[in-house]
Write a protein that binds this DNA or RNA. Structure first.
Lengths: 74, 74
DNA sequence: CAATAAATTAATGTTTATCGTTAAATGCAT
DNA sequence: ATGCATTTAACGATAAACATTAATTTATTG
């Protein structure tokens, strides 16, 4: 059972952009952006992903990561 | 105004996997998978994205692409 | 440490849109 | 034309984003 991992945290750190700053640029409430940042969502709208990529000049792949669990595969 | 573009089509072609085959592996109806494949969705659940990445041994970034439109920027 | 700012969590309600299902339509072979 | 795969359409059910407000926790700074 793999998992989708959110890496917005890392990208924001790279760009040195605060949550509130990004929130304004993206047009999503800081509350929801925080959820995205801390991985507390289970889906994402493209409109949001798009705005984030635009604001951070990045790609979806920088934010979303699939981690296959090959942990102790039998 | 950039856009999120779906590239499932390309990855499936790479893996030479048909829609119905992927549908079974992923556990998503072929109808919905077709929508994803042809870009007719505006959001995606991680459970679905995860299953697709698992089945195709790929990353979200292979499927989702952000295309900033720098077309004739004023 | 005290005060302030930033970020996270919680709770509630609205709205958006997946996803399944069924059925019809299109496309592509043979 | 017949068959198989894919796409489109329409409908309902369910999941979950997203906004908002408020409270709480976590930096940050003097």
């Amino acid at each position: 059972m793999g998992k989708i991992i959110l890496r917005l945290d890392r990208v924001m750190a790279d760009r040195k952009m605060s949550l509130n700053e990004l929130s304004e640029k993206v047009g999503v409430s800081n509350v929801n952006l925080s959820k995205i940042k801390t991985g507390k969502i289970s889906a994402v709208r493209f409109s949001t992903l798009e705005a984030i990529c635009e604001a951070l000049k990045c790609q979806p792949g920088d934010i979303l990561e699939y981690s296959p669990d090959d942990t102790a595969a039998v």
